[in-house]
Simulated scan of single mutants.
Amino acid sequence: MTDSTSLRDQFLISMPHLDDRHFSRTLTYICDHSEYGAMGIIINRPAGILVHDLFDHIQLDYTQVAIDPMPVFKGGPIHPDRGFVLHGDDGRRWLSSHSVTNEIQLTTSMDILEAMAVGEGPKDCLVALGYAGWSPGQLEHEIYENTWLSCPANSDIMFRLPAEERLQAAAASLGVNLQLLTTHAGHA
């Protein structure tokens, strides 16, 4: 798969007719896409817990500094017991990171959470439990079947907008209002 056909560093916007409990009304950031499949993190579905709750669960002391409440997201149905941190690349290196772009990294090691607990984490970050995955050719087929729209990712949407505004903001970047689209799939 060439870089021009890769969806890495793209948003996947679920179409209104997608009736799947894991992906209905989701905005997914694609972290990797190759001939081996695709992997992404859903960035607009809060899990109902805050990062503080996660710190409590993994026994990290976060009481030394004031940390703004930050939601943990349901990143996808695969490995919902594993944590993933999408973040801006500020030059620091973590034990287990994958560079999505020169500006965005995905980290799975505890050292980033330890840094966040003491107020030394990345400025732009999003914590998720689980991820979304597609087997080789599956995502391309789903796009062909009008399940998803894709557009270039945008850090402001990913890190700065409230979760409930992200899906429509991504669609609007394409000039699309999802509320005006039909809930039925079709091909022209």
Score class of each variant (00 low, 15 high):
residue 178 L to P: 11
residue 113 L to N: 10
residue 176 V to T: 12
residue 130 G to A: 11
residue 116 M to Q: 09
residue 179 Q to D: 14
residue 162 P to W: 06
residue 148 W to K: 04
residue 138 Q to M: 12
residue 147 T to I: 05
residue 166 R to P: 03
residue 158 M to Y: 05
residue 158 M to K: 01
residue 168 Q to F: 02
residue 148 W to S: 02
residue 128 A to R: 03
residue 182 T to S: 15
residue 131 Y to R: 05
residue 165 E to Q: 13
residue 140 E to G: 07
residue 147 T to C: 14
residue 116 M to K: 02
residue 134 W to V: 12
residue 170 A to W: 03
residue 160 R to K: 12
residue 158 M to E: 05
residue 117 A to N: 07
residue 128 A to G: 13
residue 164 E to T: 05
residue 172 A to N: 12
residue 135 S to Y: 10
residue 152 P to M: 04
residue 156 D to M: 06
residue 178 L to N: 06
residue 139 L to E: 07
residue 145 E to L: 12
residue 149 L to W: 03
residue 167 L to A: 03
residue 119 G to I: 14
residue 157 I to A: 03
residue 175 G to A: 10
residue 142 E to T: 04
residue 156 D to Y: 12
residue 141 H to P: 00
residue 184 H to E: 15
residue 135 S to D: 14
residue 140 E to C: 01
residue 181 L to I: 13
residue 126 L to T: 01
residue 185 A to H: 07
residue 149 L to R: 04
residue 114 E to K: 15
residue 113 L to K: 11
residue 166 R to H: 02
residue 127 V to P: 04
residue 145 E to S: 13
residue 114 E to Y: 02
residue 121 G to V: 11
residue 124 D to I: 00
residue 154 N to A: 02
residue 116 M to R: 05
residue 115 A to I: 04
residue 136 P to R: 11
residue 182 T to C: 04
residue 174 L to H: 02
residue 139 L to P: 07
residue 186 G to K: 04
residue 124 D to F: 05
residue 114 E to I: 11
residue 126 L to R: 01
residue 174 L to N: 05
residue 142 E to Q: 14
residue 151 C to L: 01
residue 126 L to Q: 01
residue 147 T to M: 12
residue 114 E to N: 05
residue 114 E to Q: 15
residue 175 G to F: 13
residue 162 P to T: 12
residue 165 E to A: 12
residue 114 E to S: 10
residue 138 Q to V: 12
residue 163 A to C: 09
residue 130 G to C: 13
residue 180 L to K: 14
residue 123 K to N: 08
residue 176 V to C: 07
residue 173 S to P: 06
residue 133 G to W: 06
residue 148 W to T: 02
residue 138 Q to W: 10
residue 183 T to D: 13
residue 180 L to P: 00
residue 153 A to P: 07
residue 158 M to D: 01
residue 164 E to I: 00
residue 114 E to T: 13
residue 168 Q to E: 09
residue 132 A to D: 08
residue 141 H to A: 15
residue 186 G to V: 08
residue 123 K to G: 01
residue 183 T to W: 00
residue 122 P to L: 04
residue 113 L to P: 07
residue 147 T to Y: 08
residue 177 N to D: 15
residue 130 G to K: 06
residue 120 E to F: 09
residue 156 D to P: 00
residue 115 A to Y: 08
residue 141 H to M: 11
residue 166 R to L: 00
residue 141 H to Q: 15
